[in-house]
Design a protein around this nucleic acid. Structure first.
Lengths: 249, 249
DNA sequence: CGTGGAATTGACACCCGTCAATGACTGTGG
DNA sequence: CCACAGTCATTGACGGGTGTCAATTCCACG
């Protein structure tokens, strides 16, 4: 279902991909992307390989178990990465935003699924062709390694959260991680517009929607967060939230 | 305490490091290590950088938060990697065995601690010097990237386990992952000698020692595993265990 | 105004953690 | 050779945190 929609969108956008290199040079995601590690000639080469993809919210574009044919770079929007069990239980292993890179796997098939949270723009690359190109630019490969290491450190932090933190500590930690991500893009970090649903947060924190909802109210009652009519979250006291998140509170 | 013991062992072993390259050429860990991606001249160069370290069981040699000065390659033995909270809660994010590589981080300080499970041999490298060397051997860097990707995939699987699996599913999954690791080294995979304590398994699976112990007896009662007098585990029916682990059972 | 998804809130149950006691084994000293 | 201490593993009784099930509210959208 979702995958069909994705294919359609891919096709529809092929026409819009004429002036590739101009798009790359104007790309707002470049400072946060792999491309930032490429010199000018490399940028031209990678631009020639890219297919620009534009997807609506809620579209799956990577399916666990499918042949890992493509790699994706997020230039606008945000996505969730998740794994599922046969009975439907789902674990969101991470959220990726502008500059995020998907698909650099060793396995021949994807080990996770991915779906857009919001309207999202992607650069799509054929895996074999991108790998051949990157082999010529060691700096880009090193950048990729650094991205993988960062993701690994994040994953270890998330394991700590899932294995050992209480429900309240988990939500506090999540809000702070999201806030840090916002600051990374130059935004305040104290006014958050969460692009994901409560059920996504639950699937990320190893909890149920009901528990997440109860915790949001609890944090609001304690004055640790504010929630306005539009659902926007404010963090009036990040230090106290930090204490909660680390179990010191 | 432990760190002092480690330093002592490091010093004591410096004398034994004369014939480095011979040691590398005879190294049983080579086919599983980063070194396997190095050509002959690279092997000589990396051998010159290595300090051979020999540690007894239960020795900490990486401390979360310390300056990330060294990288380590495991040539014999096994270690655990973990993070801790202020109040002592601990999450073991992974176990590493022969060929395992520690310390390739982006941060200037270690993001996790590491401690030996058994008597362990390590090759220690100064980070800056190893990085300079690797920059000359792109194939080695690509190998490192592949290792990081594998670790990332393992981490995502572990997040699924911690966030969404029941206690019994967790233990079954753990036994199967360990079994697969054994087969990777050419061993049977149905006769397991676990190098870690029950409390380590608990800290890895997000459970308590008591629960882990109860689950071992439960699996034994169900005939899913055997435990002999020495504590060795046998897996008479891996398929059934697999069904348990994936929630299909 | 009607519809459907998302979020919230409540009542209750249960899995697993907590606390505590016992057993198995190892190494040490008398 | 045995007494002893220490660590690790096992087992039992009990309680709490979080999941499950269900009802209600809220809101976007047609």
């Amino acid at each position: 279902m979702l995958r069909a929609a994705a294919s359609e969108a891919l096709t529809a956008n092929r026409a819009a991909c004429e002036s590739r290199i101009e798009a790359c040079e104007a790309c707002l995601a470049r400072p946060f992307s792999l491309c930032s590690a490429l010199p000018q000639p490399g940028l031209h080469r990678i631009a020639a390989l890219a297919t620009f993809v534009h997807l609506p919210a809620g579209t799956g574009f990577i399916e666990e178990g499918d042949p890992a044919e493509y790699l994706f770079n997020i230039t606008r929007g945000a996505v969730k990465i998740f794994k599922s069990l046969a009975d439907g239980r789902r674990q969101i292993t991470g959220f990726l935003s502008v500059g995020g890179f998907l698909g650099f796997d060793v396995a021949a098939t994807y080990t996770y699924s991915a779906e857009t949270l919001t309207e999202t723009h992607l650069c799509r690359f054929q895996r074999a062709r991108l790998e051949a190109l990157l082999a010529e630019f060691p700096r880009a490969e090193r950048h990729l390694l650094a991205m993988a290491c960062t993701r690994l450190a994040d994953a270890q932090e998330q394991m700590m959260l899932l294995g050992r933190k209480t429900a309240l500590e988990r939500l506090a930690s999540f809000l702070l991680v999201f806030s840090a991500g916002e600051r990374h893009f130059g935004r305040s970090g104290t006014e958050l517009t969460l692009p994901m649903k409560r059920s996504d947060i639950a699937d990320h924190l190893g909890l149920t929607v009901e528990t997440v909802s109860r915790l949001f109210t609890q944090l609001r009652m304690q004055g640790m967060i504010g929630i306005d009519a539009a659902g926007k979250i404010s963090l009036p006291n990040p230090a106290a939230l930090e204490a909660l998140a680390s179990g010191t509170g």
